[in-house]
Each structure stands twice: as structure tokens, then as C-alpha cells.
Design a binder for these strands. Structure first.
Lengths: 102, 102
DNA sequence: AGCATAGGCAAGTGAACGCTTGCCTATCAA
DNA sequence: TTGATAGGCAAGCGTTCACTTGCCTATGCT
């Protein structure tokens, strides 16, 4: 329905948020690299396909961008879509609020 | 699992985001006021109970605070939890990133 | 008191979601 | 060419989620 729907749906899962954390620490990781990090550092017993699906969701939301090089596919973080959240509810413009009279 | 889970789950639904929009325009609305606004302005054919459940989710996430006065219950917006998102991935500190060597 | 208004609780339903399993394609090294 | 590595596609399963329906409590007006 909403255009922002993909973004918020992508952020709704804790595994996907952890993936964003990992890409924040090191951008340009491959699928297998992300897999091993989630397994080692975060003790997440999760399959490769599950993570692949998570990455697809993050890519649909614009939070992750990919580039292919040979048999490797690198995943880069893009935090730009997150600005929507700030712009929507943390905008400094409070000039046209209605008065509170129940 | 995560403590931030409530926040992102709350934002994952488009109706709840619309409620936040409405509370941004006018804080301190009652349940019925929110109901009529969603119905009129946003053409959302949704029951009162559904909206009540949405407000409970938003309150659990800390995005909405409530105060009772007689038979009225007013709902106030609290955008403070949204700062978590900025702090987590939009933090200006990029000093301790790892180098990208696949 | 009697009735309308404002809100709450709980069970049930259909759809979406997260994850697994199994198999397939593509790239590179021996 | 064979084998290993990196990734993709799709069906199936159990859980969670959004929403409805029905009934109940509390406050206020006349």
C-alpha cells in the first residue's frame, strides 16, 4: 500500500537489523561472509537461504545495494532510506499543528 | 528477543504509521477521534477495536503515551524512541570500520 | 434510575512471514 | 573436465499478525 512499507517491513525483523549492524561495521560483504559472522558473533543458527532471503528484503527496501564481481556478490549498506523516518516524525516543523481541544 | 523489537514491530504496520501521522498533527486525541479521522481523512474502513489494538502496540513501543481523564483516554505522541534508529545506523562515528578485503 | 458514550477483554479466522529442504546454475581452480 | 565454491529458485510448514465479532465495565447526561 504505502511506498515506505518495504522499508519498515525490512526493519521489523531482528535478524535483518543485525545484518545492517554487520554491514555498518564492514560494508561490501558476500553472502557467505555474512552467514559466518551471524553464526560466529551472534550465535544465530540460521541457514544460508534464510539470510539470502533477508538480504533480498533489505535490497527491496533500498537499505542494501549489491554488485556482482565474478562469482562473488558484494552487499553494501545504504542508510539513505532511513532519513524518511526522521523526516516524517522528527521534522522540526511544528508550525501547523492543530490545537488540542477534545 | 531484542529490546528494540517492540519499536520496529510497531512501525511495521501502515495503519499504525498513519496513526502516528495523525498524532503528529494533533496530539492528545481520544480513541474515537482517531477512529473518525482514519475513516474520514484516510478512507480506512477499520473497526474501533482494531485501532485500539494498534494503539496498544504503539504504547508498548513507547511511541504513544496515554492519560485518563474521566471517561476519556487521551493519546500523546512520543517521538523519543525514534532516535534509536538514527543512533544505530546514522551515527556519525565511522572511525572503527573494518577494511573491505573479501 | 436509565440510557448513551468511551473504552476494554477474549476467542476465532485468514493471510503474511520466517525458515527449511531440495535441487539447480555459474564461476574458478586442479 | 572434474570438483569445489558462491549463489539462486521454489515448494512446504509452523508461527505470528491484523482484524473481526461478541460481550462486558465505567463514566456522564437527563
Amino acid at each position: 500500500m504505502d511506498v515506505a512499507d518495504d522499508l519498515f517491513k525490512a526493519l521489523a525483523d531482528s535478524t535483518r537489523r543485525t545484518i545492517l549492524d554487520e554491514l555498518t561495521q564492514k560494508s561490501g560483504q558476500t553472502l557467505f561472509e555474512i552467514c559466518s559472522r551471524l553464526s560466529m558473533k551472534h550465535r544465530l543458527g540460521i541457514s544460508r537461504q534464510a539470510i539470502s532471503q533477508h538480504l533480498a528484503v533489505l535490497e527491496a527496501a533500498g537499505l542494501v545495494e549489491t554488485r556482482r564481481e565474478g562469482r562473488y556478490k558484494f552487499h553494501d549498506l545504504n542508510t539513505a532510506p532511513l532519513r524518511q523516518i526522521t523526516d516524517r516524525w522528527l521534522a522540526p516543523d511544528t508550525s501547523d499543528q492543530e490545537e488540542s481541544t477534545p
